[in-house]
Computed example of a mutant assay.
Amino acid sequence: MRRRTFLGITTGAVAATSTLAGRGASASPARPGSFAPHVVVAADGSGDFAGIQEAVNAAPAGNASAFVIGVRPGTYAGRVVIGADRPLVTIAGLGRRPQDVVIADDRANGTPNPAGGTWGTTGSASVTVDGSGFRAHNLTFANLFDEAAHPEITNRQAVAVLTRADRVAFSRVRFLGNQDTLYVNSPAATTVARAYFRDCHVEGDVDFIFGRATAVFDRCRVHSLHRGTTPNGYVTAPSTDISNPHGFLFTRCALTSDTAPATVFLGRPWHPSQDPDAIGQTVIRDSRIEAHIGSTPWSDFGTWPWREARFAEYRNFGPGASVTPDRPQLTPAEAATQTVPAFLRGTDGWSPDRH
């Protein structure tokens, strides 16, 4: 089998369609023997630690080189925070498939906080990443908040992963939740923070990929759940600052759903605190779009019109990829500037897509 290296971890070759086969699908198995974790987490107590946060805390503060945490198969409950003082942490699942290692919590925005009040959207995150250079491979992050079981909670945003750091990367990772599954953000509105997702699976229903980060989704499956409402949901809610030319880029992805045709929007422009400078960008190119997306795929967000956002498509295909007056398309010249290198390289030449 041909081998390749991603983020310094050697894995089996991954077929281009490996993330398209379903929620439980996985690519070729990881090879934990091809790298040496600094510490191992095992739920049964056979490792160095039984919990993920304990292992993160073991990473040297201000670390100048990668600190690899290997995680044996199991489900690991509880909030995880990778602080800004813990850079270059890698969490790698040691199972054969991403679903073999699950890191999860179950709080929502409106869940009571023991310290008072509620957790809020940011506080609901199962995993929060503030450490630059964070990497994750071959595992699942989930927010297990059960909406049906908590009708008393109306603020149901429940984040699986919140990233606020620069140069974070995920490969063969599943992100599971409902509303607000993946929050890709930055420390401040005008601060650029880059995130790269390859061969990943992201699912949810309302605004389930949102924030102001520069985020590239490369060969990922983006799956809209059936919510049973009209509309059934929104894939993205970018809040990119006007000073940042790069928001969300989806390339060679598959946008899928089990819900009814033309009931899901590709996105709507989020203006946090009514910020007029949050001119969100979502670009979807060279991707398969299924029939859950209709001929008018973008939506206004309150009083903020989608036509003032930076929404565009290019060379998409599939039953939900029609070209209409309500679907702005990049020209070839524009498409040449909306690429993975353009989004990620910056002034430091960061190139996780090449490793």
Rank of each mutant, 00 (worst) to 15 (best):
I82S: 09
T331Y: 03
P325Q: 01
I209R: 01
G83R: 15
A58I: 04
F301P: 00
V40D: 02
W350L: 10
V129N: 05
D166I: 06
P245M: 10
R97Y: 06
A30P: 12
A342L: 04
S18N: 08
A291H: 01
R23C: 05
D218I: 04
V222M: 14
A108V: 08
A321N: 04
N143S: 08
S186Q: 08
S65A: 13
H223E: 11
D326K: 02
S299F: 08
I289R: 01
A188G: 15
A312N: 03
H137G: 07
F217Y: 14
R198Q: 15
I289C: 01
H150S: 14
T240G: 08
F49Q: 03
D326Q: 12
N63Q: 14
S46H: 06
V71A: 04
S46C: 06
T296V: 09
D300G: 03
A189M: 10
T256F: 07
F301W: 13
A25M: 02
G45T: 11
A321K: 01
L144Q: 12
A342N: 06
G280D: 01
R174H: 14
Q274W: 10
P112F: 03
C220A: 11
V340I: 15
T5N: 12
L266A: 13
R97T: 10
R268Q: 10
F197L: 15
L255V: 15
P87K: 05
A309D: 01
N155Q: 14
V192L: 09
A59Y: 00
P269T: 01
S132R: 14
R164V: 10
P98L: 05
T263D: 09
G12R: 05
F197A: 10
T121Y: 03
R307H: 11
V173M: 09
I279S: 00
I91N: 01
P341A: 13
L266T: 05
R310H: 06
T331D: 05
R107A: 11
A61Y: 08
C200W: 02
I91D: 02
E290S: 11
T256H: 04
A84R: 14
I209D: 00
A136C: 05
A260H: 07
S224Q: 12
A213H: 08
R72V: 00
E308F: 09
V159Q: 07
L7E: 06
P269F: 00
T337P: 03
W350N: 09
R345C: 03
D146M: 05
A125V: 07
R252A: 12
A42F: 04
R174M: 12
Q53A: 01
N178A: 10
T229K: 11
S287P: 02
G294P: 04
P238S: 04
P328Q: 09
V40W: 00
P32T: 05
L162T: 10
L162G: 04
T111V: 11
I103M: 03
Y196A: 03
S299N: 14
R79Q: 15
T181Q: 05
Q99N: 11
F6G: 06
P37Y: 02
G22P: 03
V168W: 02
Y76G: 04
G177I: 00
T19L: 06
D85V: 10
S257D: 02
P29D: 09
W304A: 11
I289Y: 00
P245H: 11
F197S: 09
D275V: 00
S287F: 07
T191V: 15
A195M: 04
F343D: 03
G133Q: 04
V206W: 13
T229C: 07
Q157E: 13
A169Q: 09
P60E: 11
P151G: 12
G280Y: 00
E290T: 15
V89D: 09
S224D: 05
